[in-house]
Design a binder for these strands. Structure first.
Lengths: 159, 159
DNA sequence: TTGTATATAATGTTGATACATTAAATGTTA
DNA sequence: TAACATTTAATGTATCAACATTATATACAA
């Protein structure tokens, strides 16, 4: 089923909530989850034609950030945005698509070094233009200052 | 694996990002997903001892909001926070736990009316105290005004 | 060195999710 | 009314995720 996230002015309208939230804290929590799903959904719509899931995209970006240095599977796990059962299997998928390379770490034979391939870098580059477009649409909604303040409020929520 | 979300002052530190984000909009998006996972994780830790998943809890709250009126499965789908394949199977689980009741809608025999049971209401009541505690811990981090402003910024992000 | 603990990745298993399809009831229109 | 479209929930299926376990390598202490 294709879920349609409705765009409107407040979270209450979006989730058709009739009774008001008891506290602004509860409201912000529901809003956070809903908005996060909304963003993930729109991101996935971009990634799907490229055969990537959100998590795979995420891993590729982590690898690009360190390129040309390798990143261990355990490091990938640490830096993933959402908890994951298995970075191994995720890397499996990327290896199968020839987007990353997996080699035994020379200094520690338990560890596995993962490097993004040229093919992986090229794919990310194509996706960068989509990200840039997305950023532009966001800029219509929030100023840079507001976006920064939003980030800061989220940081404090997790503090 | 139990993932530990680290508490610190900025999203860059939390995800061990070495290179800065290109735009505040990209930063806020990553922060949003990370924070949402952080919240979902801490919520799940509360719900697990009660044998509920986040989605099941969500459905129960929707039903309580309309109690004693029934809610159709299609309405539940519409109001869920995250897209879901199957409200049917989710209601199945709640029926099995005797937390909700499922009856054929008299006016439309395609539809199925779902009502929360007294047992379901009692369970939610117990969880309310946990929610209240959660709200208190949040109040240390954000003022009510800040929480409201955060909600407003999220609303505008989805606009 | 040996034994034990820890770190790391892979695998097994169970259950949940996404997506497509089906089944049945209702709505619509010729 | 008959035919077709739409709505609603349930089901089938393949994939993904959570959690536990295993296998191997390394660290460390006796």
């Amino acid at each position: 089923m294709l879920l349609h996230y409705i765009c409107s002015m407040s979270i209450e309208a979006d989730i058709k909530q009739t009774t008001p939230f008891k506290t602004p804290y509860h409201r912000v929590m529901v809003n956070l989850m809903y908005t996060s799903n909304w963003v993930a959904d729109s991101q996935m719509r971009v990634l799907k034609p490229f055969g990537l899931t959100l998590q795979q995209y995420n891993v590729l970006r982590i690898l690009r950030g360190q390129h040309p240095n390798p990143v261990k599977v355990s490091d990938i796990t640490e830096r993933m945005l959402d908890k994951m059962s298995n970075a191994s299997r995720l890397v499996d998928k990327l290896v199968a698509k020839k987007l990353v390379l997996r080699t035994e770490c020379p200094s520690d034979r338990r560890a596995v070094d993962v490097v993004i391939t040229d093919q992986g870098l090229a794919l990310l580059k194509r996706l960068d233009t989509h990200q840039a477009k997305w950023d532009l649409t966001q800029a219509d909604k929030l100023t840079e200052e507001e976006a920064n303040y939003l980030s800061q409020l989220l940081d404090r929520l997790r503090a």
